[in-house]
Write a protein that binds this DNA or RNA. Sequence first.
DNA 1: AGCGATTAGAGAGCGGTGCTCTTGACGAAA
DNA 2: TTTCGTCAAGAGCACCGCTCTCTAATCGCT
Lengths: 232, 232
Amino acid sequence: MNASRTARERVRAELIREITDIARRHLATEGATGLSLRAVAREMGMVSSAIYRYFPSRDDLLTALIIDGYNALGEAVERADAACARDDFTGRWLAACRAVREWALAHPHEYALLYGSPVPGYAAPQDTVAPAVRDTAVYGRIVAEAHRAGRLAPPPICPPPPAILAEDAEIVRSLMPDVPDDVVTRAIVVWTGLFGMVSFELFGQFNNTIAHRTELFEHNMTCLGRLLGLPE
Amino acid sequence: MNASRTARERVRAELIREITDIARRHLATEGATGLSLRAVAREMGMVSSAIYRYFPSRDDLLTALIIDGYNALGEAVERADAACARDDFTGRWLAACRAVREWALAHPHEYALLYGSPVPGYAAPQDTVAPAVRDTAVYGRIVAEAHRAGRLAPPPICPPPPAILAEDAEIVRSLMPDVPDDVVTRAIVVWTGLFGMVSFELFGQFNNTIAHRTELFEHNMTCLGRLLGLPE
DNA sequence: AGCGATTAGAGAGCGGTGCTCTTGACGAAA
DNA sequence: TTTCGTCAAGAGCACCGCTCTCTAATCGCT
């Protein structure tokens, strides 16, 4: 009855896991464009057409890898944040930054899949949105809690955001409750600045230019944290 | 003698130009992975193998497009800067930002080729480095001239950069002469922040979140300019 | 226990890709 | 005029995503 049914489903789930594992390995070594269903099938001792029983298309396999990637990155950021004293907001911010960078350096092709050029003709299905903001959610909590604790003192260098941005701030605020609009927009600059930095490093823009990337990253993330208003 | 030789070479150059033109059009519509030598050859009424007389591999064609892209972007930024009053440094900075964003929005696939995930197995040859920094060179001039004019007043929120970063600053200084180390590192954060913003918008990270992207961009670039020390 | 329905794998095949090699034609130089 | 280098063309190799059909195994239910 149910046991036998789950028996078949269990082997199916196991095969799906094995496929994604092999695919992730191929992704890590060959990159996204080098990921081929046929190669995965070959390595599994399967005929290529059999793979389509489990993933109806290459894009579906890619989607699975993207979701896994978002979750892995989000989990890394969550762990880094959790290891900090709750009221050390600057430390939590820097820990989150390091987690993003280190995960990206360790999984460059997966990072490229998440934050690089979108795969053409591929539209991220709805399943990806929840995992996609796991890292951002951690960041939002840090900002919100720092603000609630009265530890956020943004330097008076930015003009107030235009009123029209209040609408967008309303949506972003779901990730950082009770934070005023100007802090929300500032949080966006800072967050995109982090990924701009990581992408530049990973995508080769620093080649032949920046040698001490860890130090530059540390220093720049500190600056961005100060721009956000985090204490020294 | 020489005239006839150039005759042959001229038709060759013309064909190369036609190939890159068609390829750029395909790139714009299909994206990098959809760019196929066979399709270009088909459109030219050539047999596929003939293309290899002009571009020995697909990567070589891609390299040509990358160089063209860097030049087009660099030229757009140069034009935007040139249209500003020389001593309006904030205006020049914002104009450069807008030029980058607008060029990227108009040529998303080319931007992805330049600043997105690197093509796997593809190493940018040396020919690309000079065009690759055309935009950055404009930025460097703005920063250097603003500093020389004494119009750069960085807010006292960043710690001084660690001494080890002086080596990298030395190299970057070739693009912004006579600028002190702390301004150089600040300039890097700001510059990467610009591209982080553009990439987030272009690569879909703002989907379902940010609606008023132009306004957010304007505001954030203003903030980054202030972080750099540009006047109000 | 046996039967019908469902699921899985195998294989052939389609149209596409990058790339290589050979062949034959043509034009410029000797 | 002959020779030599360049070029388009064609066939072909190995790969790709994906579809279809056929067979065999497995499962659910009577």
